[in-house]
């Protein structure tokens, strides 16, 4: 997450989890709780995740900008950070099976095959 080695800023908008009558995945008009900015290296993310690869290259809005925005639920925040750590080559900090399942879901969302495999192995060992 160092500025020095990064070429992009990943802006993560964290929105509140569902309100009763709301549908959780229609996030567009939800209030943004807070914003987190991370300095990332696009090459590393793109290498591990086809989502990020396309995000940075496929010619839509984000490809041309230094800053890309991800919108996630509050409940996903911890898992996403853990996934990013994993992509950068560190171990997962999640230890409980619940936590790991969450990471697994996020990894599946972004297609991080190595992390999916890793999580599955961890879960098998419980």
């Amino acid at each position: 997450n160092s500025i020095n080695f990064s070429d992009r800023i990943l802006r993560i908008e964290i929105v509140a989890d569902e309100e009763k009558e709301d549908v959780p995945w229609m996030l567009g008009n939800r209030t943004v709780l807070r914003v987190k900015s991370l300095f990332v290296t696009s090459a590393i993310l793109a290498a591990k995740s086809p989502f990020f690869y396309k995000l940075f290259t496929n010619g839509m809005q984000e490809s041309g900008q230094r800053q890309a925005t991800l919108q996630i639920l509050q409940s996903e925040e911890a898992s996403l950070m853990d996934l990013l750590c994993y992509i950068y080559g560190r171990n997962l900090s999640s230890t409980t099976s619940d936590e790991i399942v969450k990471v697994l879901i996020i990894a599946d969302k972004f297609g991080v095959a190595s992390c999916i495999r890793h999580c599955s192995e961890l879960l098998c060992n419980f």
Partner: peptide, 20 residues
């Protein structure tokens, strides 16, 4: 007009449609 579209948003929508 593809350059005006947000990849993240579209991906997210498609993801959730499939997921649900």
């Amino acid at each position: 007009n593809a350059s005006g579209l947000s990849f993240e948003e579209l991906y997210r929508n498609a993801y959730h449609m499939v997921l649900h």
